[in-house]
Amino acid sequence: MLRYIVRRIILAIPVLLGVSILAFLIISAAPGDFLDQYRLNPSISKDKVEQMERQFGFDKSVVVQYFNWLSQVVQGNFGYSFTYRIPVFNLIWGRLAATLALSISTMIFAWGIGIPLGIYSALHKYSFGDQTISFIAFIGISIPNFFFALLWLFMSAKTGWFPIGGYISTNYNELSFFGKAGDLMWHLVGPMVTLGTAQLAGIMRQMRGQLLDNLKMDFVTFARAKGMPEKNVIRKHAIRNAINPIITMIGYTLAALLGGAVLTESVFSWPGMGRLVIDALRQQDLFLVMASLLLSSIMLIIGNLIADILLAWVDPRIRFRLS
């Protein structure tokens, strides 16, 4: 198992190199660069723009720029953001807490409710409960996130039950520990529900379909025939087999953990990575974009690895093949 993990990690290196080359080429091929906003500023002279081109290395060829960047990255220096003038990881760390708080709680919300609901729906196929849950889930899937977010904010403004967006209150520092936690939770509900309802429906439908398929399988009929209690048939046999594809889905979700959700973050004024990266893309803040792309690729690789390990853990057949 350990050898397998090490091999996967070594294989990830060429993948990351490829991703970085492609990303760098595509960003450089896009018209213009970070200095375009300076070029259109009436109070900045041409000499000054040329001096900054030299400073940022824009006067060199793309290949030279890439290798300069790569040699710095190998030494652990991911470069400075052109806009903020601070190392890119200082910026990303600053956003990490809010990003993870939102994505992890959304994940718990969506998976925690989606899987049980899916199981319930499958076991009560075509009942009134199943129909109601499916109906609500489809509403969740079909309302665009930004619109749901705006509706939520409007509701909050009218009722005062929830804050009108934001991450923490302005008096956060004066609160006790529990006050702080409560304040954070209070702000978290809106974006969590917005993002969660969109994912929940997919998870629920997936779980329902998988379980229904498995309930039709011969081994279930066999288990029932040999007189196994129905509870055990479902828990130990049907669900265990139905959960495999769901775990593969978790791998991809982990990759999306850091990506953030730009529109929802914007509407809720949530200080996550999504807004930071979108601004960086718009301004062609090269090194910040590169760092966030690399980070997402790493998360995707790790997410897949974790999903594979989890699969091996729940499925003895895979464990057998790996060893």
Binding site: I164, G165, S269
Partner: peptide, 20 residues
Amino acid sequence: IIYTIVGDQNAELLKFEAGE
């Protein structure tokens, strides 16, 4: 003086109308 950073003009408007 407290500047609240809002992500979007609609959110800013709602906050103003709510007296925040």
